Simulated scan of single mutants.
Amino acid sequence: MCERLKLSTWRVQVGVLQSMKTYFQRLLLLEKEKDNQNFTALSLILTETCSALTHPLENKSYSSVRTEALSVVELLVKRTGESGQWECVSGKSREQLQRSLSTLQTDSRPDLRDKAQELRRNIQSQP
């Protein structure tokens, strides 16, 4: 899914982002159980995903792509926070997300600006 986000039409990107959201809603690795094997697997998944999400978050042309990408980030932040697995998100991934979210803070749509600002603050406040 991550590969398809960069080189696809906006409709495909929206479809991929919706699939990603469903995937992360159902991902069992984001449950409260912790072990080293799960930590490594989840870290790899989140690193790849955060890197791939920067492109649709910074998409200047299509607000639907930005909206879907923002909802995936919101879900990731919520699920990793609730399960106590925020440490699976590397420092580099956090920086990438914050950088992309700060670009969204200048968006023409106020709802996207506000959500991006809220998520950016949430990411900064995580230990």
Rank of each mutant, 00 (worst) to 15 (best):
E68M: 14
N38A: 12
S93V: 06
Q96V: 04
S90W: 03
S8A: 15
S90D: 10
V89D: 04
V12I: 15
A52R: 02
L46W: 02
E31V: 05
K32Q: 11
R99T: 14
L57H: 02
R109I: 04
L57Y: 01
S63N: 02
S90E: 09
R11F: 04
L104Q: 11
V65I: 14
Q37R: 14
V89A: 05
E3W: 03
G84F: 00
L27R: 03
L46G: 07
Q37L: 14
T40F: 02
Q124G: 01
E95C: 05
T54I: 05
Y62A: 13
L57F: 02
R99V: 15
S64D: 14
Q25H: 08
R94H: 01
S71I: 06
R113Y: 00
D114Y: 01
A52C: 11
L76I: 14
Q105F: 02
L104R: 13
V72M: 04
G84E: 01
S8P: 09
T54K: 11
S61P: 00
L57V: 03
A41D: 10
F24A: 03
R66M: 10
E74I: 00
V12N: 03
L104G: 15
P127W: 04
S51L: 10
C50A: 15
R120W: 08
E82I: 08
L42M: 07
L27Q: 02
I123A: 01
V72L: 05
S19I: 04
L42Y: 03
R26S: 13
V65E: 05
L112S: 06
N38T: 12
R121Y: 05
K115H: 13
R120N: 15
K92G: 02
L46Y: 01
L28D: 09
M20P: 04
G81P: 00
T49D: 03
L53K: 10
E82K: 15
R109E: 12
L5T: 12
Q124R: 14
E87G: 04
T49S: 07
F24D: 01
K6L: 08
T47P: 00
C2H: 09
E68A: 15
R120V: 00
R11W: 02
D35Y: 09
R120L: 01
L29M: 13
E87C: 13
M20K: 09
Y23R: 06
R120D: 10
N122R: 14
Q105R: 15
Q37H: 11
V73C: 08
L70G: 00
V14D: 04
G15M: 08
L101R: 11
K60M: 08
L17E: 02
G81D: 03
R26G: 07
E87I: 15
T54S: 13
E33G: 07
F24L: 05
S125C: 01
P56N: 00
L101F: 03
G91Y: 05
L104N: 12
L7I: 07
V14Y: 03
T47D: 14
T9K: 09
D114T: 11
Q117S: 13
Q105S: 13
R11S: 12
W10K: 10
G91P: 09
T49Y: 00
V72E: 00
R113Q: 15
S100C: 11
D111W: 07
E82D: 15
N122W: 10
A41M: 06
I123H: 08
M1V: 05
T80W: 01
